[in-house]
Design a protein around this nucleic acid. Structure first.
Lengths: 189, 189
DNA sequence: TGTACATCAGTGAACGCGCGTTCACTGATGTAC
DNA sequence: TGTACATCAGTGAACGCGCGTTCACTGATGTAC
């Protein structure tokens, strides 16, 4: 029996979880603040209290997504180039709600500081050296980074929309390894 | 001065153009049937007359998108592997409204015959040999096809969201050639 | 050339609904003394 | 240990709005005779 309390404990967390679940189940276009609050069992005004408005809620989810993605990519980095790509696809499959909202720019509060910082962190891994403005790295590395990013991002979308031919591996990690093998190894590093 | 007539002439066409424009300008999540009808200068019930409901309108746009994409890819095919990818990115950049809705499954009428046929046509070029069920082609070709599809799809999304680093070429075609160069050539064909 | 009629395109009013946002409020918690 | 008070979390009612859908209708067009 769930204890009903006036103070939820961690309502912010619960709302973010609920909106991610709602997006996964019903799609990013159908999500509403009221429905999410209903799922959590709280008044919809409570959601407004935490996030301001709908864009605020979704922006917070997108920022969290970029943070988690960045953490996953950073953790994979020591294992090398390929494993970063594997981690990318893994993230998309494990967090489809976050992933959907991260790239749906028109739903987000655009000049949001937390979101921008989180974005910077995840793209720092994807575009190695993007942070070092002073001394840009080898242009060839840049195109290699974009190629890798494009490939894993597109692959993630393929997997999420169920468009991968069935002869290929079901497991996202194995699939990524097989598909990314068609990428030439980057010249340096 | 625009002549105002009771019969529009080609309202279906005009509505599809308007919804593509609306998605491009205001995003796929914000689009409404009433707004689109207003843009064309027609009652919103007229749109319902042509497309049944909102899902019908967006499904028709998605189907048209797949047809146009298929035509572009087929035209590029004789020029070889790489040019098909170039055509893919070109299509996404030229038809962002269509492109957005083609991959937003939750907005579409799912068992729509015209949409499915159009999808089949475009994926027949992307997954070469997908049509030949009887005699499946070399599995290695399949993974190569998926790799190429994933790369150009991801690259298109990068371009549309303005996330391509500015040292890389602005022109989508040139960009695609540079980035896709990191893909190993497929073994056969 | 004219008339009758079927067909199709588009209208306009009406409906009920869920939405996002606002606001004065109340309940709970923690801290200072 | 007790009391006063500030702070914060969450409530519930109200608002106005634009939406999607439905329906009986009217205007225009084309075809048969």
């Amino acid at each position: 029996m769930v204890e009903s309390r006036y103070h939820h404990g961690d309502l912010r967390r619960a709302l973010l979880d609920a909106v991610a679940r709602a997006i996964t189940e019903r799609g990013v276009t159908a999500v509403s603040v009221r429905e999410v609050a209903r799922d959590v069992g709280v008044s919809h005004a409570a959601a407004a209290h935490h996030f301001g408005d709908k864009a605020g809620l979704l922006t917070a989810l997108a920022a969290e997504g970029h943070e988690r993605l960045a953490a996953a990519l950073e953790a994979a980095q020591p294992a090398g180039f390929l494993e970063v790509g594997v981690a990318y696809v893994r993230f998309a499959v494990d967090h489809p709600g976050h992933f959907a909202v991260m790239f749906q720019g028109d739903l987000l509060r655009s000049p949001d500081e937390a979101l921008q910082a989180a974005r910077r962190r995840s793209s720092a891994v994807l575009y190695p050296g993007a942070a070092e403005v002073v001394q840009p790295s080898d242009p060839a590395d840049r195109t290699a980074g974009v190629a890798a990013w494009a490939l894993v991002h597109g692959l993630a979308m393929l997997v999420l929309s169920g468009a991968v031919p069935k002869e290929l591996p079901d497991d996202p990690e194995e699939l990524t390894r097989v598909v990314a093998a068609h990428l030439r190894r980057p010249r340096r590093r």
